[in-house]
Amino acid sequence: MSTTFDQVATIIAETCDIPRDTITPDSHAIDDLGIDSLDFLDIAFAIDKQFGIKLPLEKWTQEVNDGKATTEQYFVLKNLCARIDELVAAKGASA
């Protein structure tokens, strides 16, 4: 079974036409991979579908804008994958 990172990296590579081998767990989706907010909606859509969750993009964006969080916490891929795992676990716990 592929890891969350493998699945997310594949989504990013296919959605944004980024070579898969350039995507690492330490890649920052915005700063390193150059993904803009509109392209990230496509990634969020694919992640939502694949994992059966709803990435709280609005909440994350608000926290970053309010200085309560950094973009690294949500958009460095290893951190993004950790958030996805948390959301999947929370969904499983509430099911």
Partner: peptide, 9 residues
């Protein structure tokens, strides 16, 4: 088709 956080398709 999909209602996400702050976006919809």
């Amino acid at each position: 088709a999909h209602e996400g956080s702050g976006y919809a398709m």
